[in-house]
Design a protein around this nucleic acid. Structure first.
Lengths: 222, 222
DNA sequence: ATCGTGCATATTGTATTCAAAATACAGAAT
DNA sequence: ATTCTGTATTTTGAATACAATATGCACGAT
């Protein structure tokens, strides 16, 4: 172990943004529901000032809706809005796939393969929550593998807007099965470094996700 | 004139974000240069609190760099960073073009044609600043024409990161000429509603812009 | 009972204050 | 002269205080 290494000191701002992001995506608030500054601030044990700064960032990402003098609400997303976001995500993931097939390290591909195995186990165990996270991790790994930071950041920010919906949606067993198979193909294309096929598969995969979302939450997605 | 109409009351936050955005993209600050909170706040005649909220938003968009306890600087963008952002912009504009070709109204296409004529006049007159704005307007019109708000927003946010570089770069006469011609083809494809061709042309056009940028500002882009 | 009005309360927006950290600078030691 | 160290100043971070706006409720008129 090295004795001299930089001290990692995360800023309050960054911590708040991160914590709030997962609170809003995985927490109890329904779309359209009001967020109380005061309450949140005291829950986190901070003052309203840094909290508001964090909320503004999340609102600019589209996870929250800020109405002047009326406070913050969980963003509501319509079926059309969902489709719009997915259309963009498809373009982004396709690009990422195309690049990742070319640029990803062997180690990176192995890591994806490991995640895939883990995800299949979680599927067998019926642990949907774990599956959800691992699935997310695979997509992020491919994004990272593109080697394009701007792409990663753009994707992250945009996917924030649908993460809540994704998290809430309970997939049908058949869709779940299908998603697993698609992921197998994705891994295969990545291993073969077949850029065009990978790009194509990721787009199709997202299309499927969108369909499944639109089925399970056609109205009132809380 | 109608006597009863909603009162438009822009929030300080929105005004600040907007004004700061154009200040940073078109103002005197060089990439990497320090931004003084105090000074900015008193220049706008507001306190630091709302100013900081606006700065955080712009930083999350990537126009500024926020370093904890060290304040805010104009973002610096490397040649690689520029290429990364353009890679994503290409994917986004291609998608926009594909959609716009299908969905844009005839009126919208006419508007683009008008802008094109205007831009050519500005080119003839050698008014590069006007050209720059009209050019921007054309691209925005196509984005809007896609009918995908998420796409528009994502593009806007991302292009903020290179707007400064774009604004600073002075194109060579030949590149300028070439860009004008590309735009003619773009208009033609849009008029013909040739989705694939439009998508392709927009990508090529951006590729050209990137090249030209990389030539004019290979190091020290202030 | 229902609708409207005015007031009390709660919430949001902004400014100010205080604390913490970084920077700039002066003086001492080599 | 140069480097180091300690201190003053500046700048940033966060909390508090105050102002403005919106919300909720009670009361009165119809």
């Amino acid at each position: 172990m090295t004795l001299l290494q930089p001290i990692h000191r995360p800023s309050l701002h960054d911590q708040l943004v991160e914590q709030l992001r997962s609170y809003f995506t995985e927490g109890p608030l329904k779309p359209g529901e009001k967020v109380n500054e005061q309450a949140l601030a005291s829950a986190y044990g901070v003052s309203r000032t840094p909290l508001r700064e964090a909320l503004k960032v999340l609102a600019s990402e589209g996870l929250l809706t800020w109405t002047p003098n009326r406070g913050v609400r969980m963003a509501e997303i319509s079926a059309e809005g969902l489709a719009e976001v997915f259309e963009v995500l498809m373009a982004l993931e396709s690009l990422a796939g195309r690049r990742a097939a070319a640029r990803m390290t062997e180690a990176g591909i192995t890591a994806v393969a490991t995640l895939q195995a883990q995800m299949e186990a979680e599927y067998e165990a019926g642990d949907i929550s774990a599956y959800f996270r691992t699935n997310q991790a695979i997509h992020e790994a491919i994004l990272q593998g593109s080697g394009n930071e701007a792409l990663v950041a753009t994707h992250r920010s945009l996917s924030g807007r649908v993460r809540r919906a994704r998290f809430m949606a309970n997939m049908s067993r058949t869709r779940w099965q299908h998603a697993i198979e698609e992921h197998r193909e994705i891994l295969a294309a990545l291993t073969a470094r077949d850029a065009e096929r990978l790009a194509q598969l990721l787009a199709v995969h997202l299309e499927g996700k969108l369909r499944s979302l639109q089925e399970t939450l056609p109205s009132g997605s809380g």
